[in-house]
Design a protein around this nucleic acid. Structure first.
Lengths: 144, 144
DNA sequence: AACATAATATGATTTTTGTCATGTGTGTTG
DNA sequence: CAACACACATGACAAAAATCATATTATGTT
């Protein structure tokens, strides 16, 4: 529910990088993909998009791969999600109505409004590294 | 976000029936589809599945169509959603991990847990007719 | 019997997900 | 420096799933 496969892989891969890349070591796509149990070529395409959007980084050649620098570790989940799903992801109507709004609400609008705001807040409050730090280090599951 | 097109159409169509079918009058699929602005053939396929699951009813022949009887108007949103999306819809992991659980949590598990329960509660609390009754009658939007 | 409409099956289209081949830059090695 | 290997970058392609459309069948009404 909620997220597409693309977003799931994007978050899990970014978390993996945040956990493991201390300094500027690189991780090649096969390492990442097997660590998070995702299809490698598809995952690499998603990560390349994140690189273009300056969320993670990459270098070519031997010893190359993907990495995340210290600054980007403090990216909030919200921005990562938006980077994959598009800017209006969190503003869509539950029932798929284009013009659903306060003035023109769908029947579920008033019930869902609060929850939507809280969800937005949840994803805006936490950075990737927050989540990694608050998790129990040797028990972080990114696969299975 | 959250729901598939199928579920969006299912909810909107059921709401339409709940609003308009007083007694046992039928509405043919074209009437319903244009009332909620959905592709008629696709919508009919979804409604047929709801009929098989005893959520709405239908009759064939002239003067036939889909309708909802008084009893089914009090179906809760949760059951309607489950009928389309499948029984484990509300229990899926945010990051797509199959074995994500209290004992084996993904990094987002503890943060999302509360919100997921609240969402479940929201959809379990309200029946379709509740929502229709609590809405402002002449301002219920099921299209656009 | 004729007709209208849901039910069903099937097919087309679009989106999402996943794979492959080739190009391009980078570092290593002789 | 040149050749090579390595790994990302890119775009074409393929498979699967979701979405949408059509045709045929079955059934109830008149």
């Amino acid at each position: 529910m909620i997220f597409s496969k693309s977003t799931e892989y994007a978050i899990r891969a970014t978390m993996f990088l945040c956990l493991n890349s201390s300094g500027s070591e690189c991780f090649k796509i096969n390492t990442i993909a097997s660590a998070i149990d995702s299809p490698p070529f598809f995952t690499s395409k998603i990560l390349q998009s994140l690189v273009r959007q300056n969320i993670i980084s990459s270098t070519k050649g031997p010893k190359g791969g993907f990495y995340i620098d210290k600054k980007s570790k403090s990216i909030i989940l919200y921005d990562l999600i938006i980077a994959v799903e598009g800017p209006d992801f969190f503003d869509k109507c539950l029932l798929g109505l284009n013009k659903c709004s306060e003035k023109n609400p769908c029947p579920l609008h008033k019930y869902f409004k609060k929850h939507k705001e809280e969800l937005k807040l949840l994803f805006k409050k936490k950075t990737i590294s927050d989540i990694m730090n608050e998790s129990i280090k040797n028990e972080i599951h990114l696969r299975l």
